[in-house]
Nucleic acid binder design. Structure first.
Length: 677
RNA sequence: GCCGGAGUAGCUCAGUUGGUGAGAGCACGCGUCUCAUAAGCGCGGGGUCGGCGGUUCGAAUCCGCCCUCCGGCACCA
């Protein structure tokens, strides 16, 4: 870590169209650990997180819930906000994009970029298909008609402000060349470079189709496109856009940020758009964009439809916060995806936390109490100079250096692995010296004291190094050793500095072993949820719909009505359904579509005719296995061209999120042409 | 099809610029201490380092081809 005395780190601001899950929690916990490490190093840290609350999605979700966008945003933002204390997050500020300070900052950035000539108003112009309600790219036009439905297209233009992103291709490439670590890990950086080299097009940065956003300066019919708005938050919180001297001084001190920590799905916005906006405004760029991988649930992608979204609370309740923090830091290798799972956590808990660390703390402090009257013994210098003591001490000294380096490069798994290696070394050291034997011979008092001092001293450094990852555990351990946790304790941290003679604190087991199987734990969790929904947690997990209901009950008849009519409006009539002609068909032949990995070209017999249908099921079915199979197709669909092949209809299949498509089939095959309804 | 990542003990993974007989943790078996959370410590079994070929005195590590898995893109009527 460089000798920078101030350190500014951010998480993304979280978009409030979904409830917080493990992914949000993880990003925030990593930022927290890094922020804490820098504070321990004596840095002046500014750690920011918050919520992204504008946009059409939020506007619609609010409408659906029968709430104003403001009320809806307040409701969900609170959940993100309340997650922080539960995870022991040490953020210095929490920003919401709906706050006045942010509106002011985003508008200021807009003006600054505009006044330097990088924003222009133009028409978002293109060929528009009124049937499909989309803009059809030039390349997909077929003889002047929509390549999708075959209907004529119209030339349509919608007003929008554009950012001259195309001007920044070369400046960005230059910056990347000058700062090889601007984006890490390297794989992500390469992706960005590839994208850059492919050329940049100007970016549409305003919308007129909705109003839930920050108005464009001097043209309030437009609201800012979400990324221009959202990314600016990193400067808002540092004091940008406020003319008061205090805020200006703060901005001068904290900007540019040292680290924007993000998930790999938003690399492009942070690695291209954001630096381009800043270059356009003539402002300094953040020092580093650091992106991490995704959490999988038992090896599978998390999704709502699978019902395997991890809610951090459940695991914190079951294992304790520091155990969850330890697990995610230890398990996820920097930059890669990692798998979350009950069994894995349980193993980590019992092996690493209970057996290794917890038991080491327990045996060390217990012996100090029993043999040394509850104070840190003082050790004879020569006894500490013997090989086992020197070896332990130098391992501890090397550990301090290694952990500092690992934290600087976000390698939490490496840091913890190294720390646990020294925990093992300390356990081995204790066995080597056998203090319980020394205690039997009064004439070996000095050796006993030296042994317990050496163990306690090593444990003290371990506890200090653990603090960023497991703050409560680190501090409790220090107190048990009679050390008062200090803010900047890493600056002078080294072995041999534990103060002799101090009284040990009260002892308690850090991580009692969990003698239950995974199944038992799950059953216990289920019981808790079913039998006694804790009053507190019920409040915390109130769904949006019930919030809407209570808003209605509170006297706002209109909001309740809105919700009801919206729901009713989503229904369709039987006539609407009957417009879709579904018929039984038989597959006559099937072959892959060249150059495509998802598409199969099918010849089917619909009873009335034989036709070609292209279906996106190549990843689930072998062509040969489909021949002769009886399926269901939509027969009255307009033709569409896919990868150059015209498709006259659509096959029906269940499509699980992230899973393989499953074709509809019958108990007994009806004849082709039979109507399905 | 294109781009990227990965394929090392039953499981999860380390293995820097090619060089002591290929490692750790978990799990398993045996032994041992008793300060400690039935924890600790020691020993052990088990791997054609995805496959084939090449460079080299020597490759898990470099090169080529191939196979498999996972992302992203094209694409999902």
């Amino acid at each position: 870590m460089a000798a920078v005395s101030r350190f500014y780190i951010t998480t993304p601001i979280y978009y409030i169209n979904a409830e917080p899950h493990l992914g949000h929690a993880y990003t925030t916990m990593v930022a927290d650990a890094v922020a804490r490490a820098h504070r321990l190093l004596g840095d002046d840290v500014f750690f920011l997180t918050g919520t992204d609350e504008h946009g059409q999605k939020v506007e619609r979700a609010a409408q659906k819930a029968g709430l104003s966008p403001e009320a809806f945003a307040d409701h969900i933002a609170r959940k993100f906000h309340d997650l922080l204390p539960a995870l022991n997050i040490s953020n210095d500020d929490f920003i919401r994009t709906t706050e006045p300070r942010h509106h002011a900052a985003a508008q200021e950035l807009w003006r600054q970029v505009r006044d330097r000539g990088f924003i222009y108003k133009d028409k978002y112009e293109g060929w528009y298909c009124t049937v499909d309600e989309i803009f059809v790219p030039e390349t997909q036009l077929v003889a002047g008609r929509c390549g999708i439905c075959g209907n004529p297209v119209e030339r349509i233009a919608e007003e929008s402000y554009f950012f001259r992103l195309s001007r920044f291709e070369q400046p960005l490439l230059d910056h990347y060349r000058a700062h090889p670590d601007f984006v890490t890990p390297a794989g992500r950086r390469n992706e960005v470079l590839t994208f850059l080299e492919g050329g940049l097009e100007d970016l549409s940065i305003s919308r007129t189709s909705f109003t839930w956003g920050i108005p464009v300066p001097d043209d309030p019919a437009h609201v800012m496109y979400v990324w221009f708005d959202a990314l600016t938050n990193y400067m808002t919180a540092a004091g940008y856009g406020v003319s008061q001297p205090a805020a200006a001084a703060r901005f001068a001190r904290y900007w540019p940020a040292d680290v924007h920590l993000i998930g790999k799905e938003i690399v492009r916005q942070h690695a291209i758009y954001w630096p381009a906006f800043l270059l356009a405004a003539g402002l300094p760029l953040p020092r580093q964009i650091v992106s991490h991988g995704w959490w999988l649930m038992e090896g599978a992608k998390m999704s709502k439809s699978k019902g395997n979204v991890v809610r951090p609370h459940e695991y914190v309740d079951r294992f304790g916060l520091d155990a969850v923090r330890y697990f995610v830091f230890r398990e996820m290798v920097f930059g890669q995806d990692a798998s979350f799972g009950d069994e894995a956590i349980l193993t980590r808990y019992n092996s690493d936390l209970a057996n290794d660390l917890g038991n080491l703390v327990s045996r060390t402090t217990t012996m100090a109490h029993r043999y040394c009257d509850g104070v840190v013994p003082s050790a004879d210098r020569e006894l500490l100079a013997r090989p086992p003591e020197r070896e332990l001490s130098s391992a501890v000294g090397a550990l301090v250096v290694k952990v500092k380096a690992a934290v600087a490069s976000f390698q939490s798994s490496t840091a913890l692995r190294d720390i646990w290696e020294v925990i093992g070394a300390t356990n081995r050291y204790i066995v080597t010296r056998e203090p319980w034997q020394l205690a039997k011979s009064p004439d070996r008092r000095a050796e006993l004291d030296a042994a317990l001092y050496a163990a306690a001293d090593a444990l003290r450094v371990i506890a200090e190094l653990i603090r960023p990852f497991m703050p409560a555990t680190g501090e409790r351990t220090l107190r048990m050793l009679g050390v008062e946790p200090e803010a900047a304790s890493w600056t002078s941290l080294r072995p041999g500095t534990l103060e002799p003679g101090t009284t040990l604190g009260e002892l308690a087991a850090l991580f009692p072993r969990i003698e239950h199987t995974v199944e038992e734990l799950r059953a216990m969790a289920a019981d808790t949820n079913d039998v006694s929904p804790a009053p507190g947690s019920q409040g915390a997990s109130t769904s949006v719909s019930s919030a809407a209901a209570s808003a209605g009950a509170a006297g706002s008849a209109t909001t309740g009505t809105v919700a009801a009519t919206t729901a009713a409006a989503d229904r369709i009539s039987i006539d609407d359904f009957m417009k879709v002609e579904l018929r039984v068909a038989r597959v006559l032949s099937a072959e892959p579509v060249p150059k495509s990995s998802k598409l199969l070209k099918l010849q089917v017999d619909t009873g009335a005719d034989q036709r070609t249908i292209v279906a996106g099921i190549a990843e689930s079915y072998e062509p040969a296995a489909l021949v002769g199979r009886t399926i269901v197709v939509v027969t009255n669909l307009k033709p569409a061209k896919l990868m150059g092949v015209e498709s006259n209809g659509m096959v029906l299949a269940a499509s699980p999120e992230g899973g393989k498509a499953l074709l509809l089939s019958f108990d007994v095959a009806p004849v082709p042409g039979t109507r399905v309804r």
